[in-house]
Computed example of a mutant assay.
Amino acid sequence: MLTFDGLVPDRWFELSAPMRADPAEEAVDVGDFAAVGIEFRAPDGSGIDFGRVPGLQQTGMDAHGAWLAGPLGGSARTLPDLRLCFHLPAPACQVVVTIRSWRNSHVVHVDDPILRQMPVDMPGSGAEAGTTATLGRDRIVLGREPTWFHYGLVPGRPITLRGQLVRTEASDGAFVAIAYRDRAGALIAPPYPGVMATPSLPAWLSVRGPSGPVYTRDGRMKLSAAGELQDLEGRAVLDPGGSPLSVNPENGPIFIGRDGMISQGRDQIGALGVFRLDPGAVLTRVNGAAVSSSTPGQAVLDFNQVGATSVSVQQGFQEGANVNPVMEMSRLIMITRNFESAATAVAETESSMQNAIRTLGPAS
Rank of each mutant, 00 (worst) to 15 (best):
Q314A: 15
D49T: 11
F50Q: 05
V8M: 06
L161K: 02
R181S: 05
G227I: 03
C93I: 05
E39S: 14
K222E: 15
N324W: 04
P199E: 01
G70D: 07
V30Q: 07
R41K: 07
I256D: 10
P244R: 02
A170Q: 13
T131P: 00
G194R: 08
V166N: 09
T131W: 10
P249Y: 09
P191V: 08
G241S: 04
A281M: 00
N251R: 13
N251S: 15
M327G: 12
R144L: 02
R144M: 11
G297D: 09
G47W: 04
R181Q: 15
Q164W: 01
N251I: 01
R285F: 10
T295Q: 14
D112G: 12
I38T: 02
N355P: 05
I38P: 02
R103F: 03
L283W: 11
D138L: 12
F4H: 08
V96A: 12
K222M: 14
D29E: 15
A17G: 06
R358H: 08
D29L: 06
I256G: 07
P325F: 08
A63V: 09
S206A: 15
I188V: 15
G270Y: 06
A363F: 11
Q318I: 10
R276S: 13
V247L: 06
S364A: 13
A347P: 02
M122N: 05
E39V: 13
K222H: 10
P325D: 10
G124C: 11
V313R: 09
G124S: 03
R337P: 03
V141C: 02
G73Y: 06
R331M: 11
D239H: 00
T198P: 00
S263H: 11
V306K: 10
M334F: 00
A127I: 00
R162T: 13
Q264E: 12
E250F: 11
T132S: 04
S341Y: 13
L84I: 08
R157F: 00
A299C: 06
E39D: 15
G265D: 12
L7Q: 06
P89K: 07
G130Y: 11
G241W: 00
G361M: 02
T3C: 05
H106T: 13
G156Q: 11
R208W: 08
E145I: 08
E348S: 15
D22K: 02
Q58W: 02
E25Q: 03
T168C: 04
A342R: 14
V195F: 04
E39Y: 08
S352H: 14
N287E: 15
D22W: 10
G242N: 05
